[in-house]
Design a binder for these strands. Structure first.
Lengths: 346, 346
DNA sequence: CCTATATATGCTCTAGTTGAGTATTATTAA
DNA sequence: TTAATAATACTCAACTAGAGCATATATAGG
């Protein structure tokens, strides 16, 4: 295999180090949660759990991830999926991440999405489940268009578009905004979380502390809640991936308790995708997906007529039971015009 | 940020090296192509172009990728997308990849998918465009179910299922086969390319030369055409990603020449997804996607009535023109019962 | 010119899916 | 008993997807 260009060997003074980042997501009622850690010396900013990859002891990234998450948070991961590998120069200061790391080292981080069936309380200090919309307030449309979007972000984006140096660049910026935020005809696509974040970042509307070198000079910065390093970007990637995957894989059940009502399920899905669903059509979709079966119990939790409890039926994904239809994920019957946005779906 | 576990710093004797792998795909008529290289000393096996990532000189992976592909193949990449990062221990022998690499080093490779608008001939020795179905004969259903699948692969998989040690494991294997290969009800899902490859690999039905340590002892091996290292796995990932993405992004146009007929477009899509489409419904789908516009010219290439030429209309993806509908990708109107599988779609 | 052949392109029909809403049922609290 | 709160059942219309028929415009060969 020796046909690579010469000079390939990196000088010993520049080492590559690999960090593993975990986006551990769970749902609590109608709150989508992500496990965060806060480190001293980071001005109180939150970050994602991360750990170094040890090339000697760890056979695969995934095993390494499971190890350090268990060590840091006492949680054992279930569903795990690789997201993306972030390798841009300057994305973090090596010495801040790896003990013994020097400024000349290069840190690459591999982000993973992990799903938990519930948000067990974590006893560790500086570790907490946080609502991910605290860091992405523009992504939650469950009560209608977020005010921060219409009142602050869109005007700021408009300024950014107007600020472009050439008409071509202006058109390009405008198109990107329209596409990412679904204005005009195209419509909000919930899975474009990363596109939106990157646009806001590029426009200087969000920023991640000082290490980005943009300091206080940003013209349009208006949205707070940064995270350390590029962790908010990693979280945006995770949210987008999870949202997109709901449609074609029965992944939501990785985040559900063993038994649940259909409304529980609906609230969980809504928490993730960030917009309300049409209740009757949602259950119709669930119903003929064949993904769940009744347990026989009922829940009298909520005041009205008791709801039947369901559980995920794994045999439906393959087995003879699945009859004719291809099992994919969930149908997400959007509620277009909510009669009263304040009151959720009827 | 210094809250990582100690002992994080890898000993200097184990270095991490990062390789970049490019799956450069193009279409020629009805042949889906991938740019391959053949190295001496690899028993004549084909592989993907790859190069080391230089942490000193290269600011991002993507720039590094573009550099080494330009150097190795004289091609400038257009559309590029990160696929996956492969880091399992033992996936390749470092000394074979990096000059100066030692057995104690750890190689991680970041795979990328790149799309070319056409397969320009490459003048480089040991570099060629190859039909990707040469390495995945079971993935091409354009002329009906591939014989290798029904005659050899499925029986071998059946043996593998029967071979399971426990009934539970047997059921598990069976379910995985059913799901990946779409037998019984669920139906063939073209984007599960990687699932299928991994299943075949696990069952010992495909193998990648000797470094996998399985040697000649495989009970069921029946499919040839391996590639070096884990390049066939990377290619499977790329094919799956590309197939899946066609449905929701207008990515096919990255692989088309500036002007084309609708049949050209259909043949290209069919080449990628590996099954035939219903012609009239395909054009209906293209038509009301609004993704293309007539150039005004016609093509008298094929013998029958001349076909109108079209071009991709980028303005449709955002612009005012897009009217009401959300522009996604293509509809893929499957042709279920081909009247005569030998004759493609009517 | 006329005919066979080949493909492009237009149109219809049907079944299933999706968005939306109405109606009915089973509880608890006042 | 009534109001409130949900759960659950059903209906309806618009649209989408699979299928196939019909017509239009070329070329090749008499």
């Amino acid at each position: 295999m020796g046909h690579m260009s010469d000079g390939a060997r990196p000088p010993l003074t520049t080492r590559i180090m690999i960090g593993l980042n975990a986006v551990l997501a769970a749902i609590d009622g109608d709150r989508p949660l992500v496990l965060c850690t806060k480190a001293k010396g980071d001005k109180g900013l939150w970050g994602l759990p991360y750990g170094p990859f040890d090339p000697v002891r760890q056979r695969t990234f995934e095993l390494g991830l499971r190890d350090f998450v268990a060590e840091q948070t006492r949680m054992r991961l279930g569903y795990v999926e690789q997201l993306y590998t972030f390798g841009d120069k300057g994305r973090e200061a090596p010495s801040a991440v790896f003990e013994g790391g020097g400024a000349e080292d290069r840190i690459v981080s591999v982000g993973y999405l992990a799903l938990a069936p519930g948000a067990e309380p974590v006893a560790m200090e500086n570790t907490a489940w946080r609502n991910w919309y605290d860091h992405f307030p523009w992504e939650d449309w469950r009560d209608g268009e977020p005010r921060i979007l219409s009142e602050r972000i869109i005007p700021a984006l408009q300024n950014w578009v107007d600020d472009a140096e050439s008409p071509a660049e202006q058109r390009n910026r405008r198109d990107r905004v329209v596409l990412a935020f679904g204005y005009e005809e195209s419509g909000w696509e919930e899975e474009r979380t990363l596109d939106r974040y990157e646009l806001l970042y590029e426009a200087g509307i969000v920023t991640e502390a000082e290490q980005d070198g943009l300091g206080e000079t940003l013209p349009f910065q208006i949205v707070e809640a940064p995270m350390i390093s590029d962790h908010r970007r990693i979280l945006a990637t995770a949210i987008g991936r999870l949202r997109g995957k709901l449609r074609y894989r029965p992944i939501i059940f990785e985040m559900m308790p063993p038994a649940f009502t259909l409304l529980d399920l609906q609230r969980s899905v809504e928490a993730i995708i960030g917009f309300p669903l049409h209740k009757q059509n949602f259950r119709r979709g669930i119903d003929n997906s064949g993904l769940v079966v009744k347990t026989g119990n009922v829940s009298a939790e909520t005041g009205g007529r008791p709801a039947a409890m369901f559980r995920f039926d794994r045999s439906r994904v393959t087995g003879k039971a699945a009859q004719d239809r291809t099992i994919k994920g969930l149908t997400l019957p959007r509620l277009r015009q909510s009669p009263n946005a304040k009151l959720r779906a009827s």
